[in-house]
Amino acid sequence: MIQKMLASALFAGVVAGLLAALLQFAFVQKPLLLAEEYESGALVHFQGVAPADGSHDAATAEADQAGQDATAQDAAAHDADSHEHAGEEAAPSSLKRNALTGLFLILVYTAYAALLVAGFGLALVYGRRIGAREGLLWGIAGFAAFQLAPALGLAPELPGMLAAEAGARQVWWVGTALATATGLGLLAYGRGPLVVALALALLAAPHLIGAPTLEGFAGVAPPELAAIFAARVLGVGLVVWAVLGWTAGALWSKETATA
């Protein structure tokens, strides 16, 4: 059984991780890199209009009117600039950075796949067979537990955002994910009003307790950038989790069909 579970998890994790990497580079990486330019001070957002493409800061807006060439040169200058500013040690090449991002996305989604498949195995112990369709629902529930519910208290962080102490936020994040996953599982498979009440309490508790936050706001990037980043992180998360759940469910039903 362990082999079947690990095989399903590994394959689904790699498929979802590769999809996540594709979507990350298409939608998420650009606002993330732009935010780092504000974090490093290469770009400055102040009262006024910050350019949406991040190719220059407002101070050079006038120079930019001279034409496209100036913008391109500016972009190159800022690029070089941000690498200097960002450097703890030497700045890693973007190829290495992106390769690591792809690798870690596969790791993260393989980890999520293992947790999902462990859930499928638990369901089987209780006589419930999971296929692609149930897997899709499990995947969406996984998204709710590991991304959406934690995001209600700790919105996806743009680089450069200041936030409460990391350890405290991690504790809240893990607690919220566990409580939400358990709550959704009880709602889906539990019986009776007591179980439903317990499930609702588990779903609500993290948000009644509240995530650790700072007293004030000190972000340096434009709010529009943080908003589009958070929205894209959650949108991509939903798509990847849905594919992860569907794939894991389909593989699992194949693996267990003979058992």
Binding site: Q24, L32, T101, F104, P150, P156, L158, V233, V236
Partner: peptide, 8 residues
């Protein structure tokens, strides 16, 4: 980048 982009 992954931690930022997956909500950790």
């Amino acid at each position: 980048d992954v931690r930022h982009a997956t909500g950790f």
